[in-house]
Simulated assay, not measured.
Amino acid sequence: MEDEVDRLVAAWRRERPDLDVGPLEVLSRVSRLARHLDRARRQAFSEHSLEPWEFDVLTALRRAGAPYQLSPGQLLTQTLVTSGTMTNRIDRLAKKGLVERLPDPNDRRGVLVRLTEEGRDRADSSLAELLEQERAILAELSPAQQAELANLLRQLTAPFDNVSG
Score class of each variant (00 low, 15 high):
residue 55 F to Y: 15
residue 139 A to W: 02
residue 43 Q to E: 14
residue 146 Q to I: 13
residue 75 L to M: 03
residue 70 L to R: 11
residue 114 R to I: 10
residue 77 T to S: 11
residue 78 Q to R: 14
residue 13 R to C: 00
residue 44 A to T: 02
residue 90 I to S: 02
residue 125 S to M: 04
residue 90 I to L: 03
residue 103 P to Q: 14
residue 129 E to P: 06
residue 51 E to L: 08
residue 146 Q to P: 02
residue 53 W to P: 00
residue 99 V to N: 03
residue 146 Q to N: 02
residue 69 Q to R: 15
residue 13 R to T: 02
residue 123 A to L: 08
residue 127 L to D: 11
residue 139 A to V: 04
residue 134 E to F: 11
residue 33 L to I: 00
residue 36 H to G: 05
residue 34 A to L: 06
residue 95 K to G: 09
residue 28 S to H: 12
residue 110 G to T: 01
residue 144 A to E: 14
residue 145 Q to Y: 04
residue 90 I to G: 03
residue 72 P to M: 04
residue 137 I to E: 08
residue 22 G to V: 03
residue 102 L to S: 11
residue 23 P to Q: 03
residue 96 K to F: 01
residue 115 L to R: 15
residue 49 S to T: 12
residue 138 L to V: 01
residue 119 G to I: 05
residue 61 L to K: 08
residue 140 E to G: 14
residue 143 P to M: 00
residue 149 L to C: 01
residue 114 R to W: 09
residue 21 V to I: 04
residue 62 R to G: 07
residue 62 R to P: 03
residue 20 D to Y: 06
residue 147 A to T: 09
residue 140 E to M: 12
residue 78 Q to L: 15
residue 82 T to P: 01
residue 156 L to V: 08
residue 150 A to L: 14
residue 95 K to N: 09
residue 29 R to V: 01
residue 156 L to F: 11
residue 109 R to F: 10
residue 102 L to N: 10
residue 103 P to S: 13
residue 39 R to G: 01
residue 36 H to I: 05
residue 149 L to Q: 04
residue 121 D to K: 13
residue 136 A to C: 06
residue 104 D to G: 02
residue 91 D to L: 12
residue 79 T to F: 02
residue 46 S to A: 10
residue 80 L to G: 10
residue 51 E to Y: 05
residue 127 L to I: 07
residue 123 A to H: 10
residue 110 G to Q: 03
residue 31 S to Q: 11
residue 79 T to M: 07
residue 23 P to E: 04
residue 130 L to E: 15
residue 77 T to P: 02
residue 92 R to N: 07
residue 21 V to M: 02
residue 32 R to T: 05
residue 66 A to E: 15
residue 126 S to L: 06
residue 79 T to R: 12
residue 113 V to K: 05
residue 9 V to K: 06
residue 133 Q to V: 06
residue 69 Q to K: 14
residue 123 A to W: 07
residue 23 P to F: 05
residue 156 L to Y: 12
residue 57 V to C: 05
residue 156 L to A: 09
residue 56 D to K: 11
residue 90 I to E: 01
residue 119 G to L: 05
residue 79 T to Q: 07
residue 120 R to C: 04
residue 45 F to H: 07
residue 152 L to V: 11
residue 131 L to T: 08
residue 18 D to L: 06
residue 131 L to C: 10
residue 127 L to R: 15
residue 147 A to K: 13
residue 37 L to C: 01
residue 16 R to S: 04
residue 108 R to C: 03
residue 90 I to W: 02
residue 68 Y to W: 14
